[in-house]
């Protein structure tokens, strides 16, 4: 599916990640040090880089900084055991596109990689349409079939975020970070309750559900027809 370069110094972790990503159909190469990772990453054939933050000899962030200064724009996901907000900001500033704190669920990693691979284009369209659902970005109104759906501002933003990523797994943490802009650890059922409300509004009697739960991971917004 995609060519992934993993830079990770811990063999056990790397083996697990490689096995999981291969299982999901990705082609993965593993580099165990910063310098070898940097050399491999310069070859621009990768679809995505996944790099550890702390590497012996060469820090993952400095590898990223070098790549970015050389004009390598391959999307990069930083893995780190450092969880503080400042570390996250530093990781993104160094050229990372996303930052995932260890330990993580493989489903979360896979969802993040998928999100980076399928980044939505800059919004130009004024109408989003997924299946029978329409979202008018000018008038901020939603319609399913012919039925108008009233949305609160937060629900509107939640829906817009999901509609831009149809068929893609969206984790609770992603929603919390991107829709709510919160940096702290979400209480997992908070997001579920908001999604539950939105789903209730979207699905009329007898209509199939547009938002499906992905067990243990999050949600997926998929067209009904």
């Amino acid at each position: 599916m995609a060519k992934v370069l993993l830079i990770e110094d811990d063999r056990e972790t790397a083996e697990e990640v490689v096995a999981d990503l291969r299982g999901r159909g990705h082609e993965v190469q593993w580099a165990d040090t910063g310098p070898t990772g940097l050399d491999l990453a310069r070859d621009r054939s990768w679809d995505i880089l996944v790099t550890d933050r702390l590497l012996p000899g060469r820090d993952g962030l400095s590898v990223l900084q070098d790549l970015r200064s050389e004009g390598v724009r391959t999307p990069a996901l930083v893995l780190s055991a450092l969880s503080s907000v400042d570390e996250r900001i530093r990781g993104l500033r160094a050229g990372g596109d996303d930052y995932l704190v260890k330990p993580f669920a493989f489903a979360e990693l896979a969802a993040r990689i998928e999100a980076l691979l399928r980044r939505p284009a800059e919004p130009k369209e004024t109408l989003l349409r997924v299946g029978s659902l329409e979202l008018d970005l000018i008038s901020s109104t939603a319609k399913r079939g012919g039925r108008e759906i009233e949305l609160l501002p937060r629900e509107y933003r939640l829906l817009e975020y999901m509609m831009r990523r149809p068929g893609q797994t969206i984790t609770r943490a992603m929603l919390f970070q991107d829709v709510w802009n919160y940096n702290f650890v979400p209480k997992s059922n908070l997001v579920d309750v908001h999604i539950g409300r939105l789903r209730h509004k979207l699905d009329g009697p007898g209509e199939p559900s547009l938002i499906q739960n992905v067990r243990g991971v999050g949600f997926v917004f998929s067209p009904d027809a």
């Binding site: 969880s83 503080s84 907000v85 400042d86 330990p103 702290f184 650890v185």
Partner: peptide
């Protein structure tokens, strides 16, 4: 267990007044 560790680290981070 991991949430507990995260919370403990979080308190440490806040108490360090770096922010």
């Amino acid at each position: 267990t991991l949430a507990l560790i995260t919370a403990v680290l979080r308190i440490g981070e806040i108490e360090h007044e770096r922010r």
